[in-house]
Amino acid sequence: MPYALCFLLFVIGLYCAVVKKNMVKIVIGIMVMEYAVNLFLIMLGYRFGGKAPIVVEEDIVGAGGQLSSLFINSSVDPLPQALVLTAIVISLGSLALMISICIRTYERYGTFDITEIRRLKG
């Protein structure tokens, strides 16, 4: 059920990116889709009563950094977290790129309306 709500968020973003006429609204729709995908990936690794994947001193048993089976069996998945961490930062870079395209288009045509822009060009 939380997966379905997450997918609903993705669909809202898709609707915004496909149907709206305002360029900034399209950027907002793409951002909403990014949030939905990041949330979904993190949710895949969650387990009930899980711990954050950070080792504290009580979790270490024995020499050489052997971890207790309690920690191994209750830690959430660190792999999606590591990949989403970089994906979030990249989404900021792509947002800056999209917004700079919007600003330049506004300076050129004086509007954010994509139908107007199409008409002026052709």
């Binding site: 270490i60 971890l67 830690s75 660190p78 977290q81 961490l85």
Partner: peptide, 21 residues
């Protein structure tokens, strides 16, 4: 992921497993 959780601290020395990945 199972390997990362079990061996992360021993192989990389990072207490934060996300950082080790």
């Amino acid at each position: 992921s199972q390997t990362y959780v079990e061996e992360g601290l021993r192989k990389t020395g990072a207490a934060n497993l996300v950082a080790s990945v």
